[in-house]
C-alpha cells in the first residue's frame, strides 16, 4: 500500500466544486421505422449492411457459431464451429443506436464475447423494438456487466491512411432487424 498512500498524499486536496451539469439535448421522437432507416444509412456509410431473415439463412450456410439467444430466435440449435474456426459469428444485440449506426452487446448468462469478434462476418439479430435515437439514450440503459459498443466493421488506416476493413475483428457486419 506504500505507493497508494504516497500518491494520495501528493494529490491536491479535494475541491468542493460541484460537477458541471451535462447539457441534455431533448430526445427526438421518432417511430422505430424511422430510426431503423437512419440506422441503415449510418451502417452503410461504415461498410456494413442491413439484411433480411432470408439473407441470414444464406449466410448460415457458411461455417458458423450461433449464440443461445440467436438460436432461440431463429429456431435453430446453438453452437457450431469452434470459436477460432467459425467464419460467421451470430449474436443478438441488446440495443441499436440510430444516430451512429452502433450496436450494444453486453455479456450475460451463456454469452460468448468472442462470437462477435473472431469470425470474419458478424451477423447481428436485433428485435425491432430494441432501437434508440441517440447514444446518450443508450447509455442510460447499459447493463452493469462488461459491454461492447460496435460501430461498423473492424478497420485500420495505419498504413498510409488507407482504409482497410477486417484487421482483427469482422470485416463484414450484417444487421437483421426482426
Amino acid at each position: 500500500m506504500e505507493d497508494r498512500e504516497l500518491i494520495l498524499s501528493l494529490l491536491p486536496k479535494a475541491g468542493r466544486k460541484s460537477r458541471p451539469p451535462l447539457a441534455q439535448p431533448p430526445l427526438p421522437r421518432h417511430s422505430a421505422d424511422e430510426l431503423w432507416a437512419e440506422f441503415g444509412i449510418r451502417l452503410a456509410e461504415l461498410g456494413g449492411r442491413i439484411g433480411t431473415r432470408e439473407d441470414a439463412e444464406v449466410i448460415l450456410a457458411r461455417p458458423h457459431i450461433l449464440d443461445h439467444e440467436s438460436a432461440e430466435i431463429l429456431g435453430l440449435h446453438s453452437g457450431g464451429e469452434p470459436i477460432w474456426d467459425a467464419e460467421v459469428g451470430v449474436t443478438t444485440a441488446d440495443l441499436a443506436i440510430a444516430e451512429t449506426g452502433s450496436l450494444i452487446l453486453a455479456t450475460g448468462p451463456h454469452r460468448t464475447r468472442l462470437v462477435s469478434l473472431c469470425p470474419v462476418l458478424h451477423l447481428v439479430l436485433v428485435p425491432k423494438d430494441r432501437i434508440v435515437a441517440t447514444m446518450a439514450e443508450a447509455f442510460t440503459r447499459l447493463s452493469d456487466r462488461t459491454t461492447v459498443m460496435i460501430t461498423g466493421p473492424s478497420r485500420t488506416a495505419d498504413i498510409e491512411g488507407i482504409l482497410v476493413r477486417g484487421v482483427h475483428g469482422p470485416g463484414d457486419i450484417v444487421v437483421v432487424p426482426l
Binding site: 449510418r42 451512429t100 452502433s102 455479456t107 450475460g108 448468462p109 451463456h110 454469452r111 460468448t112 464475447r113 447514444m135 447499459l142 452493469d144 456487466r145 462488461t146 459491454t147 461492447v148 459498443m149 460496435i150 460501430t151 461498423g152 466493421p153 473492424s154 478497420r155 475483428g169
Partner: peptide, 18 residues
C-alpha cells in the same frame, strides 16, 4: 463519428459467462 469498438469492462468474467 464513433470508434468501431468501445469496450466497457466491468470486471472479470462472471460464473455464468462463457
Amino acid at each position: 463519428r464513433m470508434t468501431v469498438y468501445v469496450h466497457m469492462i466491468s470486471g472479470p468474467r462472471r460464473k455464468d459467462e462463457n
